[in-house]
Nucleic acid binder design. Structure first.
Length: 137
DNA sequence: GCCAACGTTGGC
DNA sequence: GCCAACGTTGGC
């Protein structure tokens, strides 16, 4: 199983709304690198849900429930979407500053490719972030 | 609100 | 195929 991280501006689509809806279609990605990551997602893969701009922290865990299909928000074959559902809210959100301060997370795209909205997370990084959040998984 | 970093577009 | 111009993202 692979791990990922997706970003969302909480004022546009935040964790609370995600939980309320129960699941969502992750669409609107218009960047090739991010798109390729969407295409690599398998059903059951887990994702960190990150709040950008406001909050700037990882707030929860989600799961892929439907693998990539043509993005319904645009009539263009190039772009895809996946369906995800919330799994759990982190006990303690993990802030960007905390991630930056941790040497074990220095390779995360969140830090060195900050504009990428869908990015892979290694198993190691996943575990470190969970530990920082106070979860024992 | 500013600006650095990055991606995309389009002229040549 | 290069690169300047432009647009967008996202941290600060």
């Amino acid at each position: 199983m692979a791990y990922w991280l997706v970003k969302s501006e909480p004022f546009v689509y935040g964790w609370a709304q995600f939980v309320e809806e129960g699941s969502t279609c992750w669409s609107g990605v218009r960047n090739y690198t991010a798109r390729n990551n969407l295409k690599s997602m398998k059903k059951g893969d887990e994702l960190f849900f990150y709040h950008s701009n406001e909050g700037m922290e990882i707030v929860g865990i989600a799961r892929v429930i439907k693998e990539h299909y043509p993005d319904p928000t645009i009539n263009d074959e190039r772009w895809v979407a996946v369906d995800i559902k919330p799994v759990k809210k982190l006990k303690r959100p993990v802030s960007l500053s905390l991630i930056k301060a941790d040497k074990r997370l220095s390779e995360m795209a969140l830090i060195n490719n900050s504009r990428l909205s869908v990015q892979p997370v290694s198993k190691k990084e996943w575990d470190v972030v969970l530990k920082l959040s106070g979860e024992n998984y």
